[in-house]
Design a protein around this nucleic acid. Structure first.
Lengths: 196, 196
DNA sequence: CGTCTATTTGAATGTACTCAAAAGCGGTGG
DNA sequence: CCACCGCTTTTGAGTACATTCAAATAGACG
């Protein structure tokens, strides 16, 4: 159950057996079923979640009532509202399960304890923040410079495992286009392939 | 000359006179003139820059050769390629002066020294990273949910001092639209105001 | 003053959107 | 196991918003 997260941590920092034990003792398992909300906007984000099984999406609702997907998370990914978690301000995001999912959650006090006792974890979590930062940066760049089709192609290249599991209309929302448009983009792509 | 940056730091952490001295001793003044490149893509970002005078823009060039503005920086702002600075990988960004500008720069070794001797600075720079993260997040959300006009209105609300100093075509590039479109958006807005 | 760049305006085009309807797919209950 | 219901995906037609290309006007700077 804890193998996956330990491997993940191990990609960034090395832990002694005692440190591993402490870390694991601070994690709380959590389950949500398909279509169930893990977290709702307006609340304070007390947890970050490491996904061990399943698939979730993080979205926000704009002032026209439209949903927009901000992030998908599958096994071996962290999810949660990073900004809200760090600032302890009301979140603008919702997180909902696309499949039955299992997670390991950690709250702020536990994270503080971890920083105190195993300072290496500062580095680990800082790198998570950096990665989140980078992925947002990439998204801004791609939003400014790429067509819908290019964004979709890149999405599939970058997250091949997600492409198979996530409904098209959800991917469309992530890419910032309508489901109809994505359907047409795909049609177009297969036509191109047949010609060549 | 160092008042501005000390005030800025002071908004997040408190420093003793000795700590201030150390901090200042690690900063290198730097000048660039209008239209001059401060930093060019393909290089490693060795510095972060705190602007004490002037105005700069950070942009990247997409594979169609088009420029896109990522950030503007005026007095009391930090600029530089955060991602490149943290990872020490080749940067995709260019930074150029919109006005004659003066900065205080800090390199990685100095920052490490600062972290060692005054650990409080970890917190300061982490908050800078957080703020950068948040502003990118906001930009993704606004790109997904707002029209060009709404984005422009919000830009003016958020950065009133920049709106006055930065050429329209540069603002357009920041908003992700063409200069012609921004011109029409503005025309539209004044027409609306006259009617009401 | 003249030159260079930024901004505005116009006309035609294109990309993605909305609205509407049909087809496809998956899960549920009889 | 099949029939039905709800949701997703596809397709079509018309529309809207922003783009491109081109040209005129305005502004900044030496």
């Amino acid at each position: 159950m804890y193998d996956l997260i330990l491997k993940n941590v191990h990609r960034f920092i090395e832990l002694t057996p005692e440190e591993k034990k402490l870390f694991i003792s601070l994690l709380k398992p959590k389950k949500v079923y398909k279509r169930q909300l893990l977290f709702q906007e307006g609340n304070i984000a007390h947890y970050q979640y490491f996904v061990t099984k399943g698939c979730l999406r993080t979205y926000f609702i704009d002032n026209k009532g439209q949903e927009h997907n901000v992030q998908f998370a599958i096994e071996d990914w962290w999810t949660g509202d990073m900004h809200g978690f760090l600032t302890q301000k009301e979140s603008r995001f919702n997180i909902i399960a696309i499949e039955d999912s299992e997670m390991l959650s950690i709250d702020r006090p536990s994270m503080e304890e971890l920083y105190q006792k195993v300072p290496k974890f500062n580095s680990y979590f800082r790198q998570l923040l950096q990665n989140a930062f980078i992925s947002f940066q990439d998204r801004i760049l791609s939003g400014m410079s790429e067509t819908a089709e290019e964004r979709y192609v890149n999405f599939r290249k970058k997250y091949p495992s997600m492409d198979k599991r996530i409904p098209q209309n959800q991917i469309a929302s992530f890419l910032g286009i309508t489901p109809e448009s994505l359907s047409r983009v795909r049609k177009n792509m297969t036509n191109k392939n047949r010609k060549s």
